[in-house]
């Protein structure tokens, strides 16, 4: 059980790795952006995991539930903001890729570099 309690964090680490790998190693710009999305999503998992309390429930105080245990609302608020930041970055990144494709006729880093060298 003790190690199972860290499983979420390890998955966070592995997702981080997968996303980071795509950003660093892929040359297709759309793929890089997807990697960035995965990378950011991993962080969502980190925050939400730390706010969870055993036997708890979502932090919505209702009648008849007065003595329930609630998970921490704060990390959830932070991640709501982070999700918004993530989609904003993705949208802007896609806008740039569309323009790169129009100017260079390719969405691959190598082609872009090649065509500027000439």
């Amino acid at each position: 059980m003790n190690f199972l309690g860290l499983y979420n964090y390890w998955v966070f680490a592995v997702l981080l790795m997968i996303g980071f790998y795509a950003v660093v190693a892929k040359t297709n710009l759309v793929k890089k952006l997807m990697g960035l999305s995965l990378f950011q999503a991993a962080v969502f998992l980190l925050y939400i995991t730390m706010g969870k309390i055993s036997g708890g429930t979502a932090p919505i105080i209702q009648k008849g539930l007065e003595d329930a245990v609630f998970s921490n609302p704060l990390p959830q608020v932070l991640i709501l903001t982070a999700i918004v930041v993530g989609i904003s970055t993705t949208a802007l990144g896609l806008g740039i890729i569309v323009r790169i494709n129009e100017e260079y006729g390719s969405i691959d880093e190598r082609d872009v570099q090649e065509s500027d060298r000439r």
């Binding site: 759309v30 999305s37 969870k52 979502a58 932090p59 998970s71 959830q76 993705t90």
Partner: peptide, 24 residues
């Protein structure tokens, strides 16, 4: 993990909006 608000947002944004933007 008791994060209903975040789940709703992630579903609407990650699975919905983000997919549409990528496809667009």
């Amino acid at each position: 993990l008791d994060a209903a608000d975040v789940a709703l947002t992630e579903a609407a944004v990650g699975a919905g909006i983000s997919t549409v933007l990528f496809l667009g």
